[in-house]
């Protein structure tokens, strides 16, 4: 039960009850303020000479990590959605079983193994890491796309065709909007996994939030490991909540109830 508040206290209460601003604030505060926590880490790990990771600023690591995730996820999204679309059309339907087994295989290779194979061939740095992350991220997106398109009722597709929408119009006006929530939840899963997996890119020399973790593990510096891991976790939590927001917006029409009061509330929410 929320207290009966009005005006700005009500708005404040609503913001305070929302986890997104909290996790975002924690992320920003820890990224910029990690060095200030030096006394805390020194007290927790008195045996360490350097209790806070200092080779790079955490802000630079977060940016590098994010850009690696953004690039690999963008490629995985484009590839996964297009391939998912293609195998659901008459032209590509024959390839669907093959495509699904290939995807399952790509998922069963540990990304570390992909890195171990790719790094000697194309060299160290970001390129092998990107390949591993894209391969690993494709499956949930392609599966989400296929499941989303499968979930569109055949009758809806038929009536779209019967009313005179051509294949392309039926796809972007009817099928994709109806499939969007399922596709988006596939993208959400893929991106969240990607944020965690991108840490291993640091084993082949790319700078990410994995750097303090890898260096901490090899140098028995648990403080480094914690600093990297906490930031990765906060990044994942914040992104997950952003996706939740996006899903709510996409599915807004579903949650309108049968009364005019519901319709009025919807207008209010979307107008905010």
């Amino acid at each position: 039960m929320s207290p009966p508040l009005k005006g700005w206290p009500k708005a404040l209460w609503r913001v305070a009850g929302d986890p997104l601003p909290w996790s975002f604030a924690a992320l920003v505060a820890l990224t910029l303020g990690m060095p200030a926590l030096r006394p805390l880490f020194a007290a927790l790990f008195p045996e360490l000479d350097r209790p806070v990771y200092q080779q790079d600023s955490f802000a630079a690591l977060v940016m590098a990590h994010l850009s690696m995730v953004a690039l690999s996820s963008a490629i995985a999204i484009a590839g996964g959605v297009l391939l998912g679309l293609w195998v659901c059309r008459p032209a590509g339907r024959a390839f669907r079983p093959l495509f699904e087994s290939l995807l399952a295989m790509s998922q069963s290779f540990p990304p570390v193994a992909v890195l171990a194979v790719a790094a000697p061939i194309i060299g160290f740095g970001e390129a092998p890491a990107l390949i591993a992350l894209v391969l690993y991220g494709l499956l949930p997106i392609a599966q989400g796309t296929m499941a989303g398109l499968d979930s569109v009722p055949a009758s809806t597709r038929e009536v779209a065709q019967g009313l005179g929408l051509d294949t392309w119009q039926s796809l972007y006006k009817v099928e994709l909007p109806l499939a969007a929530p399922v596709i988006l939840s596939g993208i959400r899963t893929s991106v969240i996994i990607n944020i965690g997996t991108a840490t291993i890119a640091s084993t082949v020399g790319a700078k990410t939030l994995g750097s303090p973790i890898i260096i901490g593990l090899s140098g028995f510096n648990t403080a480094y490991v914690i600093q990297g891991a906490v930031l990765v976790a906060l990044l994942a939590i914040t992104s997950d909540q952003l996706f939740g927001r996006l899903e709510e917006r996409l599915g807004a029409w579903r949650t309108r109830d049968a009364t005019d009061a519901g319709a009025a509330r919807f207008v209010q929410v979307s107008g905010r």
């Binding site: 009722p153 009758s155 038929e158 779209a160 009313l163 005179g164």
Partner: peptide, 17 residues
């Protein structure tokens, strides 16, 4: 041709979104 002919099926045929 289809745009010159109205087409109606059972109620599930409305676009829900």
């Amino acid at each position: 041709l289809r745009r010159r002919m109205g087409y109606a099926i059972q109620s599930i045929g409305l676009f829900p979104h």
